[in-house]
Design a protein around this nucleic acid. Structure first.
Length: 227
DNA sequence: GCGACAG
DNA sequence: ATCTTGTCGC
């Protein structure tokens, strides 16, 4: 049984450790995302060299999911698999892009905050929809305000995307960094690549084509992966 | 109490 | 997020 009160307390403590200032170098930008079945999460992490805009590394990891999706507590569902994949990266990215929010969270602790603080690296949350707060129309970029604080910015790269700092970077620099990346399917390149990779890996696993990749991770030909 | 609600 | 074929539109 999950105790939201307990999880919320963990988020408040983590939020206190988040550094919402900074302008990290961004030569190597990583992106992380996950695809799901009824029982497992397939996370993929990619590293893009911003100068050539080429993917220089691509890894994946699998893990059983233990929690359902609950708005505000999404990190506890996806974090495990995401960290597992990120730890497999040989290259050290300058900044991490996460599918979800960072400071634009009720307790200033979205999944980008969790990953940034726990992995001790600059992290930025990029989401397609708001979890909390409102967009201040008029300014450019448009600030996302919650409880009187600017927790992120709304960008208009094709469709709206909400960028908020997770750790080691300011809201302004996070927005500028993301705005400077090429977009693919409404997502900055590193995230689009991570998303596509996670889905491809999940598909291959379900078809039984690539169980070798995750051998010894808790499932294999013998275990069912409910879809 | 009511509505809103990342992926 | 996932379930799902064809189909309407830029």
């Amino acid at each position: 049984m999950i105790r939201r009160r307990r999880l919320a307390e963990i988020q408040r403590r983590l939020a206190e450790r988040a550094v919402l200032v900074g302008r990290p170098e961004a030569e190597l930008v990583a992106g992380v995302d996950a695809a799901y079945t009824g029982t497992h999460a397939f996370a993929a992490a990619v590293v893009v060299d911003v100068r050539s805009m080429q993917v220089v590394e691509r890894v994946a990891a699998c893990q059983r999911v233990h929690l359902p999706y609950i708005p505000g507590y999404f990190a506890f569902r996806e974090m495990g698999a995401a960290i597992k994949a990120l730890r497999r990266l040989k290259s050290r990215a300058d900044v991490l892009l996460v599918n979800g929010h960072g400071a634009a969270h009720p307790r200033r602790c979205g999944i980008a905050t969790h990953l940034g603080v726990l992995l001790r690296m600059p992290a930025i949350g990029v989401a397609s929809r708001l979890l909390c707060g409102r967009v201040e129309q008029g300014k450019e970029p448009a600030p996302v305000v919650h409880s009187g604080e600017v927790v992120g910015y709304a960008l208009h790269c094709g469709r709206a995307v909400y960028v908020s700092p997770g750790h080691g970077i300011s809201a302004e620099n996070a927005a500028a960094l993301v705005a400077g990346l090429p977009f693919r399917k409404h997502l900055p390149l590193p995230l689009h690549e991570a998303h596509a990779t996670a889905e491809a890996v999940k598909k291959r696993i379900i078809n039984g084509d690539a169980e070798i990749i995750f051998e010894g991770e808790g499932y294999g030909k013998g275990e069912r992966i409910h879809r």
